[in-house]
Computed example of a mutant assay.
Amino acid sequence: MSNFTHFNEQGRAKMVDISEKKETERSALARSSVIVTEEIYHKITGNEIEKGDVLAVAQVAGVMAAKKTSDWIPMCHPLQLKGIDISFEWNIENNTYELQIDAFVKTKGSTGVEMEALTAASATALTIYDMCKAIDKGMVIGQTFLIEKKGGKSGDYYRSEKRNNNE
């Protein structure tokens, strides 16, 4: 009935059968960010948030989220992840304090880890918001996007520089 891979013959959603796909190394890198006030920036970097070490807690949340992606996203396959790394970098310009979050996920399997990387970046940003919302609820979670993915049938993907400059 349909040529879409996520629909069955009745036109209803299904999880794609990947049993015939070759097992290969696959990785993905996703990015998100949180814009905070100067006060929150100083409290995070000075480890003065009452709930604890914001970046440590957010990092663990990102790792946990990557491992549980198939519980959040209905058509994602549960994957045995081989590595997850969440890193942070502060970008401070014109009195704007932006915490950039990069989530790298790797596996060896029959399907990619893009959704796991995107979920990890998103959960990390949400956790930072949760940890700091008592100080300011006006924080802004920035765009979340895939930077690169490697491996699999569709080949490698690298976000173009032009697209990055428009974000």
Rank of each mutant, 00 (worst) to 15 (best):
M1V: 15
M1G: 11
N3R: 11
T5H: 11
Q10I: 03
G11H: 01
R12V: 13
A13E: 02
A13N: 04
M15N: 01
V16I: 15
D17A: 02
E20D: 12
E20L: 15
K21I: 07
E23Q: 12
E23C: 02
E23L: 07
T24K: 01
R26M: 03
S27H: 04
A28I: 10
A28D: 07
A28N: 09
L29Y: 04
A30I: 00
S33E: 00
I35P: 00
V36F: 04
T37S: 11
T37I: 10
T37D: 00
E38R: 15
E38S: 12
H42L: 09
H42T: 14
K43T: 13
K43Y: 10
T45S: 04
G46D: 03
G46E: 06
E50L: 11
G52S: 04
V54E: 08
L55C: 08
V57E: 01
G62E: 01
M64F: 04
A65V: 10
A66I: 15
A66F: 10
A66S: 07
T69N: 05
T69D: 03
H77L: 03
H77D: 01
P78W: 14
L79V: 15
L79P: 06
Q80M: 14
K82H: 07
G83T: 14
I84H: 10
D85K: 12
S87R: 10
W90M: 08
I92F: 01
I92S: 02
E93H: 11
E93W: 09
E93M: 13
N94D: 12
N94M: 11
Y97M: 07
E98N: 06
Q100A: 08
I101P: 00
I101V: 09
I101F: 06
D102Q: 05
A103V: 07
F104D: 06
V105F: 00
K106C: 02
G109V: 11
M115Y: 02
E116F: 01
A117I: 08
L118G: 05
L118R: 03
A120M: 10
I128Q: 09
I128S: 10
Y129L: 11
Y129T: 13
D130P: 01
D130T: 06
C132F: 04
D136M: 09
D136R: 12
K137C: 05
K137P: 06
G138R: 15
M139G: 07
V140I: 11
I141C: 05
G142H: 00
Q143L: 15
T144M: 05
F145R: 02
L146F: 04
K149E: 02
K150M: 09
G151D: 04
G151N: 08
K153I: 01
S154Q: 05
D156Q: 05
Y158F: 14
Y158Q: 15
Y158D: 12
R159I: 15
R159P: 06
S160N: 05
E161L: 08
K162S: 11
R163P: 07
R163G: 08
N164I: 15
N165M: 14
N165D: 03
